[in-house]
Design a protein around this nucleic acid. Structure first.
Lengths: 368, 368
DNA sequence: TTGAAAGCGCTAACAT
DNA sequence: ATGTTAGCGCTTTCAA
């Protein structure tokens, strides 16, 4: 019978093996010198007693918890879940634990999450910041010596590694493709919760005054959309820009119904997986044929985009790989804190499928 | 300048506030007696210094880490991601951290994960056991005083709370529905990685000798399928039972192609979300019309099941809620270890949509 | 109400 | 190569 807790400690093992606790520590923790003979005795004693190492005590003294923290928008979002899988695979390889939290894209929740993770003494953080104009808490983590790696968002003001895609470019390419198919009235369904992003929706004609480094993903994607129009000399109708204000399929559904009913665009561009789900549902509800009655372009690859009829064109990000690499950047920095900051920009892939038709061809079909 | 680490400790705060470290601990940790006056001084000093509490040190002494561990099959699986969201919402409410791991349905990985989580001194575990016939490691956790709550699987031999659905019943209902629609040749696409489950696929006619309490979900669902046939006096062709051996959409795709080519069933029953994805892809690849050429029934509700044409019938589990409740059961047990074991069986919902047609009606249509 | 002191389980100096 | 000892940062007796 032990004092309070019946848990077996290193002292119990040492006593049973007839050695000092230091020797037991060395054998069990695999550090320092221990003779094979004694080590074996200790290991046997540990196995007999059912000893389980106490990482908390180890963390206390080494100052390393062998744990990283992840702050994502929403774990149940397939995008994040896939990235998390990559992160956790790498963490397992390094024998690190992964503590997860959700911010739901809200800055106060993100701050809370970061604080709790820091109190738990994580050795590093992977964050998809809710608002890149609002991240003193991340700065603080870094100045406390806890490295931060950013997923899917970049922060020029922060000494943090990042893994991302070029959102402006990706969105511009997709929009150019739609425009070049003859669709001059493309509705864009996007989130734009941050104030700075929202400005772009409110004054699209002033996009040149916007500081692209202050835009979140949805802002960047809207900028790409605007740039593509500008470059091709096609004016943008304000009513085509639909802002949900939050990451919510239901809101995307509502905005899409409204844009279909009020503006009746020739194409819809849904700029992330959540928007895609809501927007596509709305199109189905209105029983508009794709691509003959409406072209549809998505963002992010989802399992089901090739299971619909027709299959849906999209901009695919290598999400799992991005998760793997952001974790690798973080572990690299944990072991080498003084490396220069590294931003990895990954290529997206345009998956051109049958959900987009040339505007002319629809007319041709109808003529027959 | 501090000794090694530049981190601010409770002693730094105490010194700055001119009080003892004990007083600072009481104020910062919100326990014991502190006068308002002194408390305020301490809080101000802490804020000035940017003090961050060290939960590791707290855990060390209290023996509670305020963290739970979750062992799931695969975080990137939408089913698990959704449940995890429920778990993490509850954990946040309790101000607990959530450590996640993936077992990929492999027992050794699960054992590893549990060991690591125990070493990290988690206060409880939520597990979806890979193989319910193989869980001494869970028994061990419980006997160490670390409560375990089971998600989606039940273990009669273990003193662990569980949240589940009646898989046999759910599958039997779905199968009865298909049979009653006149489909007497229903292919079932299922995982069956555990040896005990696999036996059911190898000798389906001996299902009555099977101990239902030893079956995993996929085994239980196969049993439901067999029972429905038995009850309705319809023989089961062995070639209709397709076993992928692992949770893998590609394998489901292959097995479905093969069953379509070799046996050409009248209906397909895909018994989880991963199987559904692979099976549906195969049906599309063979360009078989649903429901006229083939009826299709899925298991688990997925976003896209209502976005296909026709919409896909399925057995829906209340996944998020199940995650919430398994976490609540765990927290209840953490605070009251001596409560009797509780198993919550949740109702599934049959979502009958257009992917299933009566066998007769197809003929009728063809007659016209 | 406050402070002094002991100690959680382990590692890291240091001495042997 | 092994043992002794002093903490890591905090909570928790216990005395004052």
């Amino acid at each position: 019978m032990k004092k309070k807790n019946n848990r077996i400690t290193i002292n119990d093992v040492a006593r049973k093996a007839g050695v000092s606790s230091a020797a037991a520590g060395r054998a069990l923790g695999n550090y320092g010198y221990v003779s094979e003979e004694i080590k074996e005795k200790i290991m046997r004693a540990a196995a007999d007693l059912g000893y389980v190492a106490n990482q908390v005590a180890r963390a206390m003294i080494t100052g390393k918890s062998q744990t990283i923290g992840v702050v994502g928008a929403d774990i149940s979002n397939p995008f994040f879940a896939e990235a998390l899988r990559g992160i956790s695979d790498v963490a397992r390889r390094h024998e690190f634990g992964v503590l997860i939290t959700s911010s739901d894209e809200e800055v106060p929740r993100e701050q809370d999450a970061v604080r709790i993770l820091l109190e738990k003494q994580v050795d590093g953080l992977i964050v998809s910041p809710a608002d890149i104009n609002n991240c003193r808490h991340l700065q603080q983590a870094i100045s406390q010596g806890i490295p931060v790696a950013l997923l899917d968002r970049q922060l020029s003001t922060l000494a943090a590694d990042a893994v991302l895609i070029d959102n402006v470019h990706a969105s511009r390419e997709a929009t150019r493709y739609l425009l070049s198919c003859g669709h001059h009235r493309i509705a864009i369904i996007t989130e734009l919760s941050s104030d700075y992003d929202a400005r772009l929706a409110l004054e699209p004609e002033h996009f040149s005054r916007i500081d692209a480094t202050r835009l979140n993903s949805s802002g960047s994607r809207l900028l790409g959309y605007l740039l593509a129009h500008h470059e091709m000399g096609i004016p943008v109708e304000r009513a085509l820009i639909r802002r949900t204000g939050k990451y919510c399929a239901q809101r995307a559904y509502e905005e899409t119904l409204s844009v279909l009913d009020e503006v009746r665009p020739g194409a819809i561009f849904a700029v992330d997986n959540v928007m895609t789900q809501g927007a596509y549902r709305a199109v189905r509800e209105r029983e508009i044929a794709i691509p003959d009655g409406l072209s549809f372009f998505a963002f992010d690859e989802l399992d089901w985009l090739t299971l619909t009829t027709p299959r849906i064109s999209t901009v695919a990000q290598p999400i799992y790989k991005m998760g793997v690499h952001v974790a690798e950047l973080l572990f690299r920095r944990i072991s080498q804190p003084d490396l220069p900051v590294s931003w990895q920009t990954w290529q997206v892939e345009m998956k051109l499928r049958e959900s987009v038709a040339k505007a002319g061809e629809v007319a041709a079909k109808q003529d027959i």
